[in-house]
Design a protein around this nucleic acid. Structure first.
Lengths: 345, 345
DNA sequence: TAACATTATGTTAGCGCTAACATCGCAAAC
DNA sequence: GTTTGCGATGTTAGCGCTAACATAATGTTA
């Protein structure tokens, strides 16, 4: 009477019984059908179907000392930028044998560290983390993890393991250069949240303006508030009030840029003639806006897909072509930075 | 030499050893500290810290026949509407002993069914699924699941277990009534994706227009394409070209509404005087737009939080106050449907 | 045909944890 | 002083699966 009862669900032993084979054969047939003869495989598959057997992933993870979990940690769930990469990851992994486990670090490094710890406790098959700005401890944990690790949304010389993304510095620089080239004179930066990636965009922007002889530290406005369209509208107001001579602004992301557009429109300022606006990421809405908004296009979906490909290649025993992949960006010039000739005075 | 080696990580036995107690005592100390004396608890906590012990969740799940996983299935990762509820769920569960496992059904019922099956295979502590439009099989699987199940983003008389959300029918009706009350005459519906929830919004809208004597089936434009700002701009174009007399439009979500605004602006139509626009959900950008956009505000974060509270209450042995919770919505009237008196001709 | 590979399948012993029962120590009750 | 009750701790046997070794069945070579 000491016996414990499981959840009553059919187990691999039930399948083995029904198919008249041993449990290990069922296990093999399910994990790698090529290890089992056609004859038995058919019988096993039938039994599986009849019993409606679903493998118990925890038991499998325990026995094999590795789980089918892919741990993914992003700093935000509502930021569309990460949502796109996530979608790619789910598209690629959602179907197969892997389970994506998602963590939200909320831009807090300590939270990220906690999540990494928890996830590694599950012995994941792979880890995907956003960015390169982990704490030392987090980095060390991931370096010691016995699984492939991909950092996404950034590039750098010294990845934990593999990395795929683009250079925020170069992106910011391209935005700054574009505004200079368009003939804008007093070019500002409007940044919310100001996570490390935004900081790198700002650094690139600064370099471009210095190069163009237009750098003015008083034209940099940042906040730690999280970015939103409303905040963009609010801040461009304040910015213009303080510096009425401002004639262009690089927003650290597209929400802020759209907000800046609305803010200017409310203030009766013409975009692009009175003020030029450029955003970052090129979310879908940027092209549809009126006037359409210039932005730095990044391919977040491709980043997610690429990360998955790198992982799959490592898990199947291959060595990935490159451990550092820069997918770049593309300046999308639109109306919001295209002044009429007369305005370029 | 037959021995297998684990992953080398410290186990509960190592902790027990170091603390000079049995494994079950460690297990108890970690799961319910009140079951163990202060004295031993302190020693155990020390040992845990020194060894950097992380419990092996799979082993725990196997032994206890239930996991600490909360399965969540949503139809889209990029749709901000679900992202907000997800954020609430992660905020509430992310800290504690539970692991959120997220699935993306991509609006495909069969995919949802597959995910439910997979998730239930892990014996989750609870399940959260979006909407009420599961397949019969999915519904049955969830009804038989031995865990609390919460449907979110919708309400209905006949939940699988519990449900929290709002009525899309009533929301659509409120939108329609508002446009009628504002004096618009030829009121259209613009709907993308047209998932079941959008259909219910449309039904509510129809009822309102019929009630107001303004219903015209020719003024309903829908597509199965997924909604986006660009699509909204594109479709309002087509709509106005086909029916130049259109003077108001209810968009099935805010992205479409924002797109419609941009489309009208490009076409030189004044919003709200030539065309009134109302959206659905009231995403943050709606208030910031120029002109600001009327919408039906829903509190997605509260829905997620509420779902978690219901689950926690059931898991702690209580009976939730209500199994069906309607959090309602609120009409946010803004400029896009507020015509000047002269325009109401 | 013997000797040896090469599969295909089986047996056994865990993976790390917890349920179920057993025991122990100590205070209250008789 | 024995009995009873109860909370704190321990012992044992799995949870459902797979690694590692064992063995049987088949093919291959000289």
């Amino acid at each position: 009477m000491r016996k414990r009862k499981g959840a009553g669900r059919p187990t691999i032993a039930d399948v083995a019984n029904k198919a008249g084979v041993s449990t290990i054969t069922v296990s093999r047939a399910l994990r790698d059908p090529s290890m089992v003869s056609d004859h038995l495989r058919r019988k096993i598959n039938n039994a599986v179907r009849k019993l409606n057997y679903v493998p118990h992933s925890h038991a499998s993870a325990l026995a094999s000392t590795r789980s089918n979990i892919i741990g993914v940690i992003v700093p935000s769930l509502t930021n569309n930028v990460f949502a796109e990469s996530l979608r790619a990851i789910y598209d690629a992994f959602g179907q197969g044998a892997f389970q994506v486990q998602l963590g939200n670090s909320r831009y807090v490094p300590a939270e990220e560290e906690r999540l990494v710890r928890t996830f590694l406790g599950q012995r994941p098959s792979a880890m995907i983390v956003a960015g390169t700005d982990q704490t030392d401890v987090t980095r060390q944990l991931l370096e010691n993890a016995e699984c492939p690790v991909v950092q996404i949304m950034d590039v750098g010389d010294d990845p934990i393991d593999m990395i795929v993304g683009f250079s925020h510095f170069e992106g910011g620089k391209a935005a700054g250069l574009h505004l200079v080239q368009q003939g804008y004179k007093r070019i500002g930066f409007l940044g919310a949240r100001m996570d490390p990636r935004s900081h790198r965009r700002l650094e690139g922007f600064k370099e471009a303006l210095q190069f163009g002889g237009r750098y003015d530290p008083d034209l940099i406005m940042t906040t730690t508030l999280s970015s939103s369209v409303s905040l963009g509208a609010e801040l461009i107001w304040q910015f213009c009030a303080r510096r009425p001579d401002l004639d262009a602004v690089f927003c650290n992301n597209d929400d802020m840029a759209l907000g800046a557009l609305f803010g200017c429109q409310k203030a009766g300022l013409s975009v692009p003639d009175d003020i030029g606006i450029i955003g970052f990421n090129d979310l879908e809405m940027m092209a549809a806006a009126h006037p359409s908004l210039t932005s730095i296009r990044t391919d977040r979906y491709a980043i997610g897909r690429h990360a998955v490909e790198m992982i799959q290649s490592v898990l199947s025993g291959e060595t990935p072509d490159k451990k550092i992949v820069d997918l770049g960006f593309e300046l999308q010039v639109r109306q919001s930075t295209s002044r009429s000739a007369s305005a370029k005075a």
